[in-house]
């Protein structure tokens, strides 16, 4: 088994309380499913859309500086057999229903 990071980008379901509650329910159901199947290493956290970016040579700029759809909105660490399997698991993510994306990246671990 290997570890993978899911980086969630974009995907705004709308700000009405009803819609947001529905979205949350879908996420809860998806996360629960992954947890029960033993895929979750760390459910992760959402990230605030504000922030700063520090660039070389040491300049600081406001914000993550990207289009809304490109801003990372949260992350999760999962466990899967290989990249294909990790991608397979990510297909159920509710963010894909609202025009968002999941970036699946293998965590580099060297077993010694």
């Amino acid at each position: 088994m290997s570890q993978f990071v899911y980086l969630y980008r974009g995907g705004d379901a709308g700000r009405s309380p009803e819609r947001m509650q529905q979205t949350m329910q879908k996420w809860l159901a998806w996360m629960k499913d992954l947890r029960e199947k033993g895929h979750i290493t760390d459910p992760g956290h959402p990230l605030d859309r504000t922030g700063k970016t520090v660039k070389s040579p040491k300049t600081i700029i406001d914000g993550p500086y990207a289009e809304t759809k490109d801003v990372v909105g949260g992350y999760t660490i999962v466990e899967a057999r290989d990249l294909d399997h990790a991608v397979q698991i990510s297909l159920g993510c509710p963010i894909l229903e609202v025009d968002g994306s999941v970036e699946v990246r293998p965590v580099m671990v060297v077993n010694m």
Binding site: P17, M20, T23, M24, L28, P43, G74
Partner: peptide
């Protein structure tokens, strides 16, 4: 209140209610 609610749901998505 609306903002607090949005933040709550955002966090609960990941961490559970």
């Amino acid at each position: 209140v609306q903002d607090a609610f949005c933040r709550a749901l955002e966090v609960w998505k990941f961490r559970g209610v």
